[in-house]
């Protein structure tokens, strides 16, 4: 289809309580820049149930206009309902570009929408720009397990769509005094059009929820911990810094900690402000999942470990000697 406007849309995924997922709000920052360069408006798209908190957040973080699709059928994410809502909106208003957060649901929705609209999608982008020559969005993303970066364009199909990893962009400062035009769209989906049924939500074992993608601080442990007990030290440091516990594949495969903690290609992709890798050698699959962190600290006995190639601070030493002292120093600072 052709674009009817020069507008850029940011799909803002909501939590079940109607609050926005961080990545949707983060995307308003690059969204503003791209929309200005494209000469269009920055529009937030919110689908859900009781989404006032999300509308408020999108307004405060820079959306010019917000499309809201509300209904009982959107309370829980479903591919069918959300695809229908987003595609209906696109067909009606014709944006030139759409950004979607690369959460599990975002990556479920993106390809389905792109395929229905017969357009291109670039997944899991880590940087965005406007190509000076053509005005197309230049989507940059890692491939080959992070060994290679590729810049992709979608020259002849609209809208051009991309999913963007959480934590890559930072939220702009909230301005509670801002206002935005809110347009409620009446789009409903008949129950028999939703072909999947949510039977049960299973929270992490022992009530433990690990929000690696939203975390500002992650302390991760790897094979160098030597045993599940090693994670006690990791947890202590993480708690002290208000962060969460991550792990390398080696630690997960050894059964020392659950897969939900795994950072890397077969785990989560993260971009915290601070990432502390303890006893992690830094296999490319791990690095691919954490290299966009703002600051990386690596602690490893092996001076030649590849993790030091991405570290801002590399400590060559035994983590069991380094961490207790580091923890003590931080405790002193906080006391």
């Amino acid at each position: 289809m052709d674009a009817k406007t020069k507008d850029l849309w940011v799909f803002i995924e909501t939590n079940e309580d109607g609050s926005p997922k961080n990545v949707g709000i983060e995307l308003l920052s690059p969204g503003r820049e791209l929309a200005d360069k494209q000469g269009g408006q920055l529009i937030g798209v919110i689908v859900g149930s009781n989404v006032d908190a999300s509308v408020k957040a999108a307004t405060a973080h820079g959306a010019d206009k917000i499309f809201v699709v509300e209904g009982k059928e959107y309370e829980h994410y479903s591919t069918d309902a959300y695809t229908h809502a987003l595609c209906t909106l696109v067909e009606k208003y014709g944006p030139t570009s759409i950004l979607i957060g690369a959460t599990n649901n975002g990556r479920d929705l993106g390809p389905r929408v792109a395929c229905r609209l017969n357009t291109g999608l670039t997944a899991d982008c880590t940087s965005l720009a406007i190509d000076e020559e053509t005005g197309n969005v230049a989507w940059t993303r890692p491939a080959f397990g992070g060994n290679l970066m590729a810049t992709i364009m979608c020259p002849d199909h609209r809208p051009q769509i991309g999913t963007v990893r959480p934590g890559v962009f930072k939220k702009c400062e909230a301005d509670e005094a801002r206002s935005a035009e809110v347009v409620k769209e009446d789009i409903h989906v008949a129950p028999d059009m939703i072909r999947t049924e949510l039977i049960e939500v299973i929270k992490e074992t022992a009530g433990e929820i690990v929000d690696l993608e939203g975390a500002e601080v992650i302390v991760s442990g790897g094979r160098g911990l030597g045993s599940p007990e090693g994670f006690k030290l990791i947890k202590e440091l993480a708690d002290l810094l208000g962060g969460v516990v991550g792990a390398s594949r080696a630690a997960v495969d050894s059964g020392w900690i659950g897969h939900s903690h795994q950072v890397g290609q077969t785990g989560k992709t993260v971009g915290p402000k601070l990432y502390i890798a303890c006893g992690i050698s830094g296999a490319i699959q791990h690095v691919a999942g954490m290299s966009s962190s703002n600051t990386i600290i690596a602690i490893n006995k092996d001076e030649t470990a590849p993790i030091f190639n991405v570290a801002d601070y590399g400590v060559v030493g035994d983590l069991f000697e380094v961490l207790p002292v580091l923890i003590a120093e931080i405790k002193k600072l906080k006391a």
């Binding site: 017969n118 364009m153 979608c154 190639n309």
Partner: peptide, 14 residues
Amino acid sequence: SPTKVKKTFTPDVK
């Protein structure tokens, strides 16, 4: 194919 690879490059090593 609607998407075209414009260029590829190796990521910066810190």
